[in-house]
Amino acid sequence: MEQELKAEGLPKTNAFSQWIKNNFQYIPPAFITLILLVGQFTYGILDNYLSLVVAIGTSVISEMILARTILGTRKNLASAYITGISVGILIRSNVIWPYFITALLSILSKYVLRYKGRHLWNPSNFGVSWMLFLGSMNVAGLSIQWGSNLAAMSVIWVLGLLIVNRAKRLHVTITYVISFVILAYIRCLITGDAFLAELSPLTGPMYQLFIFFMITDPGTSVSTKKGRIIVVILVALVEFVLRLNHSIYAPFYALFLVGPVAKYLDLKRSSPALQVK
């Protein structure tokens, strides 16, 4: 590698940065795989590996078929992989069918619920939210299956922040975290619970996937930085209300309610030239 760089007359750091830029689409899948591996080998967060394979396989195959039949194109499957692995991590069930249905719903939402050629919901947020709401007899969500390994959390947070910064979505993550901390303090004043108890969900894998993948999703984010900041504050506020009403899966439901409305309004005011498939 070093000899190749010298032959090309490029500094190693510049060449590495260019490689990251050219292959960035593969970095988020690698990162979410790292989250899974850390959680699984440290705390065993998966019930079984078959459910994960079913979720990923359903997402990838559905993406391939729907992209070809509806859009007439081939799509990079990194996004479908992220959706599948998110489903495999975020839901819990003793049977396999919820993983298949959730992954299928997630990918279908990209091709059925569209406006001006764009999908409105983050795919995994759509599928997981519906399954947790309608399939509560057979499905639960990932919650405390992580523990409090500070070293593992630190690695994931550092890498996560670097990745969202590279994707130009760091302001989204930071705004949400600040909003969550402030609203957690307000909740503890209202409920009388300990502040650290209200704050602790931020260290869990559910929130890590939410913070680094769902609310930062470029495909369903609004088009301006100011708009994204406003939207994520609204998501945090809706989550605040839902948590006060003892909703366990408040962040998913909050994004499900706020995100597509914001995306729809953003697309409605956008120029036709910005409409893409």
Rank of each mutant, 00 (worst) to 15 (best):
S124L: 08
S106K: 04
S143P: 01
G147E: 02
L108D: 08
G117R: 05
A140G: 15
L113K: 12
P123R: 08
L113S: 10
Q145E: 13
K116F: 07
V128S: 04
I107E: 14
A152Y: 09
N149L: 00
G135T: 04
L104A: 15
V128H: 01
S93H: 06
S129E: 02
M153L: 13
N138P: 08
T102K: 01
I144Y: 10
R118I: 03
S124F: 13
S143Q: 00
L90D: 08
S129C: 06
R92C: 04
L90Q: 07
N122W: 03
W146M: 13
A103C: 03
W130R: 02
S109I: 08
G135L: 00
H119Q: 05
Y99K: 00
I89C: 07
Y99F: 15
Q145D: 12
L150V: 15
L108T: 09
V139D: 04
G88A: 12
N122C: 05
S143G: 06
K110N: 06
N94L: 03
S93M: 09
L113H: 06
Y115W: 08
S143H: 10
H119P: 12
A103G: 10
V112W: 14
S143C: 00
L104T: 09
G135D: 07
S124Y: 14
R118M: 09
V95Y: 01
V128Y: 03
H119T: 09
G117Y: 03
L120P: 12
A151I: 15
L113I: 15
L150A: 14
A140K: 14
R118G: 03
S109E: 12
V95A: 05
G117P: 00
G141Y: 08
S106P: 06
N149R: 01
G147N: 02
Y115I: 00
L134A: 14
W146K: 13
L90H: 06
G141F: 08
V112S: 12
F100G: 05
A151Y: 14
M137N: 13
H119N: 13
L150Q: 11
S109N: 11
Y111D: 07
R92K: 15
L120N: 11
N122T: 01
A151E: 04
S124M: 14
F100R: 02
L108N: 03
F133V: 09
I101Y: 01
M153I: 13
N94E: 11
L142K: 05
G141D: 09
S129D: 04
L142T: 10
S109W: 13
